[in-house]
Amino acid sequence: MGLTALLRLRTRRQYLLARAVRRRRQLTPVADRTDSLPAQPILLFSTVRNERVRLPYFLAYYRRLGIDHFLIVDNGSDDGTREFLAEQPDVSVWSTTAGYKQSRFGMDWMMHLLRRHGHGRWCLTVDVDEFLVYPFCETRPLRALTDWLDSAEAPSFAAMILDMYPKGAMHEQPYREGQNPFEIAQYFDSGNYVISRNPLYRNLWIQGGPRARLFFTDRPQRAPAMNKVPLVKWDRVYAYVSSTHMLLPPRLNLVYDDQGGEKPSGVLLHAKFLDTFAAKAAEELARGEHYAQSVEYRAYREGIARERDLWCNWSEKYINWRQLEVLGLMSKGNWA
């Protein structure tokens, strides 16, 4: 990489950090319990808006994996989300009514909290509909993974998004509070992901899955990115560039081996396509606060009307992480 490119990335990173510092004033603490963190905690960071129904299962899922504390920004919910979170003993909540889009889709707020509380700690940054699956996650807590990553001197861990969907129309099986969403959204596309490498940021750019298959057939380059690096041993000089898809400095994006070997990686099961989705799509379209002028949501709305169902004959039914590893969606690498 040339000197100019390095300088460009450095400038970009400093700009992102400065944004995060500037926008910290938008956050008002609702319940700040970060003083009582245990030693070397594993932290989870998230931005939510009107997710009251999904939160109980989300919190339970990550508590079971071994998240010690949740740091959550509530972006103007009016369904009791904030109050619910504030009651939880292992959750700290900040609230803001500022624009989601103007805050780089919440990433400025996330980065401020990461800088403030994540330095030198393992931090998982996920949305409320993303559920991390990693090798041996049924028998080994997240701490086993982060200890191993520490010993391997790996500062970051890849987990691509895997869109999960039900068989039949989304509204046919309503989601109940506390329910495992993957009882409904049981299916996924196992082998239609296309990959290219971004030479500047050195990350892999992955697209595909049911969204590309159904909603982006005529403009595949607009299909959403599936690559994510959600788990990072944070340092206050790090920056997420675009959602959690890629990071700066670029070495954090080297979560893959380019000589034929496999590094360990996981998957973020994406519980987006439930009955709650139609309402969400309508709301997001009205707000216009999502990526690329809500082009995704518009495509869904048109697509949903047309397709009804994301399921196809070759949809794979989810069993466990070993299945995902056999299919080649994730890898144990040399963690045995």
């Binding site: 890849a158 987990a159 691509m160 992901y193 990959i195 490498r197 892999l204 992955i206 690559n227 979560v255 893959y256 081996d257 380019d258 000589q259 034929g260 070997g261 496999e262 590094k263 360990p264 990686s265 080649g328 969606l329 994730m330 890898s331 144990k332 690498g333 040399n334």
Partner: peptide, 16 residues
């Protein structure tokens, strides 16, 4: 698996 990987597999943590 770490050194050679599964031939023909292109994925998030193997991209020869």
């Amino acid at each position: 698996r770490r050194v050679k990987g599964r031939p023909g597999l292109y994925m998030q943590s193997r991209f020869p």
